[in-house]
Structure formats: C-alpha cells, structure tokens
Amino acid sequence: MSNAIGGSALFARWRALLRPPRSLRTTPAGRICMIITLGVGVGALNTGNNLLYLVLGLLLSAIVVSGVLSERSLGPLSVRRLGTDAAFAGEPFAFRWLISRPKGSSFALEISEAATDLQGEGKIAHLTAGVEQSVRATLLAPTRGPRQLTGIKISTRYPFGFFIKSRVVPSPGTLLVYPGRQPAAASNPLSARHQPLGESANPHRGGGSGDLLDLRELRPGEDARRIHWIKSASAGKLLRAEREQEERDTFVLRLEANLSGGPLERRCAETAAIARRLLSQGYNVGLEAEGSRLRPSHGAIHERRILEALAWIGFEGPQR
C-alpha cells in the first residue's frame, strides 16, 4: 500500500517536472501566419530561390523573437490576489490582483484565475519595474458555490499577437460565489405566517427591551410609540429610541433535503432572494438546510452568513 502511494507521488512529481512551464496557443492570425511560413518554406525548398529563403528566415526569426519578447514580458512577475468583496452567481463582479516586477517592463498582460469556470480577465498595457500595480477585472461565475483557486494565470499576446503565451503562478485560495440575486419567483413568505395579534403584524411596531442603545430618525411607517419625545423636541425632528433587545418577527427558511443540480440551484437562489427581502424589511431570518443551521438574526452581517451557508450547500466545506 505504501509502495503504491510512493509510486503515485513519484509519478505526480515526474508529471510536474515534465509539465511545460508555459503554455502556448496560436491566435487565428497566428495560424494564418504559420500557414504562410510553411508555404514560403515549401516554395523556397522547391524552387531554391534564395530570396524566399531570406523571407523564410525572417519569418522564423520573427517567431523566435516573439517567443523571447513574450518570455521577457512574463518573466520575473510577482502577483497576488486581492479578490473581491462579494461574488454572486450570474452577476459580473469586480476582482483585483496586485502585480509587480523587480526589473524590466511587461507589456499587454492579461490576468485571470487558472483552472476555474470564472469568465473574464484583467488587462494591463504596461507594467514598469518596481511599481506594484492593481489590475481590475470584471469576472462572471456561472453558478454558486466555492471555487478552489489554484493559481493566477498571466497571459500575453505581446509582441505580435500571433501567439498567446501563459504561465500560472501558484496561489491557492478559495472564492465563494453566493447564489444569484435574481428576483425570487417563490411565494411571498409573509402570506404564509400565522395571524398576528394587534400590532404584532407591523414589523416596525416598536417593542424592544433593555437600556436605550441609540437614537435614530423615525422612518415612515414606524410605530409612533417608539418616538423619544424629549430628544425629538430638542433636535427639532422625530427621533426613535433603539433598545438593547429589539423585538422582531422571525422567519426560519428551510431548504428541502435531497435536492441536487438545477432544482437545488434554483431553491438556493430563491432562498437567498427571500432572505434578502425579509432582512431588508427588518425581520429576523434563520436558515435550516441539509447539514446547516443558522439561528434567526438580522442585519447585513447575518445576510452575508446566510449567503455563505447557501453557497456551501451541496459542497464539502464549513457548513453550520
């Protein structure tokens, strides 16, 4: 058993050693250029015309120069990932890297995340030595869920645009893509709740207990009983008292178990949309899903927690 593991590790090391440090792709113009080079070469060999040999030599040297200049461009680069604030499935989001080089210049660089389904890349026309430059890209993740980021791919078409040379700078990390923020097609959860008593149907009805925590301006529709009249009189505007424990209606969103694929994605997106709507209306929202449970709470941070939990559903990771 140990021999088998040792053998596979050795094989992996060999594969890593044999893997070319750069990858090279030809652009459509590059392909045509290669065909012309081949044609000129055949013509030169066939006719013995020395001037065709001269043209052939120039084309081949240009290809070599292209390789050297692109290598210089990709050479001693150091790049690190700044990432994004939040990434939602199906929505473009800003992603940043910091890139620098100790000496020389780089031209026409394209930066993207290697081996992921994230679409888009950042571009930088010129990178001078000794300056750490921020590169911004607008990326798009088609689906929610965590992305294991293995490395940052730096590519260049420089100098002639006939080849795209790339290298991957290893940089492990994780990008969590939240469910998309499309409007929810699900039914309104407010209609499904039990009949309230008195003012309890009003999410802003006041209530709350404990010491006075804060004063803030009264919003339209909020319970007038929460107005702090003395402070309002002195301030010249209606101020609402905020207490340590505010009373809010609570919703617990439950995701059916055993969902997978498209239905699971849709349910996650709907749940995220419902949670967002409820939280924005001031309710406490909790989440119960397969292997994940969040106590009801409110606020932007709690919304982020719900989104994270929803993003991890169906994946192995830090579910709560």
Binding site: N50, Y53, L54, L56, G57, L58, L60, S61, A62, V64, V65, V68, L69, P159
Partner: peptide
C-alpha cells in the same frame, strides 16, 4: 526585437 529578427534571418539564410 526587429534588429535581432533581421540578424536571425541572416544567420538562417
């Protein structure tokens, strides 16, 4: 780069 390409063409030739 172009200067090297021209030189390279000469060497190839």
């Amino acid at each position: 780069g172009a200067a090297f390409a021209v030189l390279g063409a000469g060497v190839f030739f």
